Computed example of a mutant assay.
Amino acid sequence: MRARLPKQNQGGAQNMNAMIRQAQKMQDEISELQEDIESRDFTATAGGGAVSVTVTGKKTVKALEIKPEVVDPEDIEMLQDLIISAVNEAVNQVEATTESEMSKITGGVSLPGLF
Rank of each mutant, 00 (worst) to 15 (best):
G113L: 07
L5Y: 01
E69V: 10
G11T: 00
I37G: 03
K7G: 02
M26T: 09
A18W: 04
E89M: 12
A3D: 03
D72F: 02
E29W: 09
A23T: 05
D36N: 11
D72V: 02
A13G: 00
D36Y: 00
V53A: 04
S31V: 11
S52I: 15
A3P: 02
I66P: 12
Q80S: 14
V51Q: 07
D41N: 15
D75K: 03
P6H: 01
D75P: 04
R4Q: 03
I76D: 06
E69G: 14
A44R: 02
T54L: 07
I20P: 00
L64F: 08
F115D: 09
I105Y: 13
V55D: 01
R40Q: 15
A23R: 11
G48T: 15
T60Q: 14
T98E: 08
Q34H: 08
T54R: 05
G48W: 14
L82Y: 11
N15T: 07
E38K: 15
N17G: 03
D28P: 01
E89C: 05
E99T: 14
P68N: 08
G47N: 09
T97Y: 06
Q8E: 03
P73N: 07
V70P: 06
D36P: 01
K104R: 14
G47T: 13
A46L: 12
K59Y: 05
P112N: 15
S31L: 11
V87K: 13
P73T: 06
K7Q: 00
Q24P: 06
